[in-house]
Design a protein around this nucleic acid. Structure first.
Length: 363
DNA sequence: AAGCCGGGCAACCGCCATATC
DNA sequence: GGATATGGCGGTTGCCCGGCT
């Protein structure tokens, strides 16, 4: 191929499309936990997913990664989005960088479905829509300054301040947007450097006082949010603990099951310890232990796959579950579709619940 | 109760930027 | 320097669901 245009990122005839099933989610999560995501294009095949690499990436970034925050946007967040959109335009990824745990897709959706309409309804320029009752501090005159070096927005409510005291040391705790005088390519360039965003947060759904987020109470990742996490997370030990925190913490049956499973216990101890454990995930011991619990989990989920000869020959390279051959689609059908799951539960929890049922039933 | 309609959101598409060979 | 591979981004689509008639 040459010249303009690119070949499709994958063979669309051979990939599954549409909503992700819990089993696919689980498979993607477990694969990335263990192997990271160095190569999105190769990932689906290695993980045994009949998905396009791009689709895997989107699913991970927008939904499955441990620091993603879900639930309704707070007024403060919405106000900030309006401010940032005024300054940056449709640069959703840049805007999202100022909201730890929020994805560009989510912010884009919020803008298109709520904020844009609200502003239109108010028939006011967005800059004058900031009659917030919070302590949100905006630019003097409500307009972003262009060319000046002053702070554009400082946004820290009392609620956020108190929340910040409970944050982990590295967790951002206020939203501060500064014009970086070193950036000349855009007159309104806002910092995207995570290092420049220390103290950045939003009044958020991980605030225990915020009950508006009905689905986040138990299954959401706790406090791992930080800007630039996508680049850093695989090297961050907290990343792994975050992953292991969120799917299972709310389900005592599942915990009980795990407690009875020694290989997993030892694995969790590994995972939940320090930064070196991240490397351990890739080490032989980590792989063995991971393999045990993943095999166990797959077994319980009915996702076991008989390894092919080539897989057997590659056992030291590929983890057991990362088959070179795609998992047979019918294996996924054993799990309920998201829409069939208990609506009161988080999507992932529904998967865990289903697995729990299967396990209890089998016992 | 059934059909219609609109909103919300997850996922896809295609282009661009960057890295690598 | 050009070709190619890959990741990332923004726009758009299409499905699902709740409200309304």
């Amino acid at each position: 191929m040459g010249g303009k245009g690119r070949s499709p990122c994958c063979d669309k005839e051979k990939v599954k499309r549409g909503p992700w099933s819990p089993a696919e989610d689980l498979r993607l999560i477990t694969f990335i936990q263990k192997n990271g995501h160095d190569n999105w294009r190769a990932l689906p095949k290695r993980a045994g997913l009949l998905r396009c690499g791009k689709s895997c990436r989107l699913r991970w970034i927008n939904y499955l990664r441990p620091d993603v925050k879900r639930g309704n946007f707070t007024i403060e967040e919405e106000e900030s989005i309006i401010r940032l959109h005024e300054a940056l335009g449709n640069k959703w990824s840049k805007i999202a960088a100022h909201f730890p745990g929020r994805t560009d897709n989510e912010i884009k959706n919020v803008w298109n479905t709520h904020l844009k309409k609200r502003l239109k309804r108010q028939n006011l320029p967005s800059s004058s829509s900031s009659s917030s009752s919070t302590t949100t501090t905006l630019l003097s005159g409500g307009k972003p300054s262009v060319g000046g070096g002053e702070e554009l927005i400082e946004h820290q409510s009392a609620e956020e301040t108190s929340m910040a005291t409970n944050n982990k040391p590295h967790e951002p705790c206020s939203l501060t947007i500064q014009e970086n005088p070193n950036h000349h390519d855009s007159p309104m360039e806002l910092t995207n450097d995570p290092k420049e965003l220390t103290g950045l947060t939003t009044s958020s759904s991980n605030d225990s006082s915020n009950e508006s987020n009905g689905s986040s109470s138990s299954s959401q990742v706790v406090g791992m949010s930080r800007p630039g996490a996508e680049e850093q997370q695989m090297d961050d030990s907290n990343y792994f603990s975050g992953i292991f925190d969120f799917p299972f913490e709310s389900d005592s049956y599942f915990w009980d099951m795990f407690n009875d499973f020694e290989p997993l216990q030892s694995n969790l101890v590994q995972v939940l310890h320090g930064a070196d454990e991240a490397n351990c995930q890739r080490s032989g011991l980590g792989q063995v232990e991971n393999g045990k619990w993943l095999s166990y989990l797959e077994s319980e989920l009915g996702l076991e796959v008989t390894p092919t000869e080539s897989e057997k020959n590659n056992q030291e390279i590929l983890p057991k579950y990362a088959t070179e051959q795609p998992i047979f689609p019918e294996a996924f059908d054993k799990l309920p579709n998201p829409t069939e799951a208990d609506e009161s539960m988080d999507y992932f929890n529904s998967n865990v619940a289903f697995a729990t049922q299967q396990i209890l039933h089998s016992n």
